[in-house]
Write a protein that binds this DNA or RNA. Sequence first.
DNA 1: TCCATTAGGTACCTAGGGGAAACTGGCTGT
DNA 2: ACAGCCAGTTTCCCCTAGGTACCTAATGGA
Lengths: 117, 117
Amino acid sequence: MSDDGPIAACPIGPVVDLVFSRWTTPILLTLHRDGRLRFVELHRRIGGVTAKVLTERLRRLERDGLVTRSYFAEVPPRAEYEITELGRSLGPVFATLAAWQAEHLGEVESARRGFDG
Amino acid sequence: MSDDGPIAACPIGPVVDLVFSRWTTPILLTLHRDGRLRFVELHRRIGGVTAKVLTERLRRLERDGLVTRSYFAEVPPRAEYEITELGRSLGPVFATLAAWQAEHLGEVESARRGFDG
DNA sequence: TCCATTAGGTACCTAGGGGAAACTGGCTGT
DNA sequence: ACAGCCAGTTTCCCCTAGGTACCTAATGGA
């Protein structure tokens, strides 16, 4: 009956969880654009996220191998984050997304206006 | 100081909200793969989602112009959902994602094992 | 006669993902 | 003497996305 379950319905589930959880996209994009950054600087550039959540996300990205963390027990402490090769390999994904948005977001907006009005 | 705010940090925010909200990916994928489907059938093929939530998602996708809904006030009622051209244009996005996953998910998993152990 | 069917709508409830704020630590500048 | 600075951690708290359960309509079949 061609029903291979939810896995077949969403074969890209894992990568979606990985890359498109809240805040992970701006983190990855900023690190990709601006290179190695320390915590406060990354925090400032993203904006809106709290330190607690940013820490959590970064830990998770580190665990997933998308980001590296270098900690220096100086005073004041220093932590630097950098995107890995693996993280960098997401470039085409983001590029495809950006391209789609540039080309089609207008259609979405006008569809919404049509639906609402 | 090259700080254009959160917008610069996440220029693809709109499309991410649009396409990667919970359940929208399997909905779009299933409709893309299997063509026009009525509500129950779509519900069955996705699995795990409740009727209430599925309805909400479909309404939203309809509003965004990614899906069309054809309702027939018969008894029992019939509603058929179909992906639009606009929805279909997301194909390359999903393909890029699937390709990345196929090539790199293994690295992610081994990074996790390394981190945990 | 009575139930299943379809496409939802509605009311209620819960878990947990985040947000806000306060705290740690030692050095450095005023 | 005292207030920052950095990189978090911890505690508390709230909101809401999503789940459960129950309701409708007219018909066809057992």
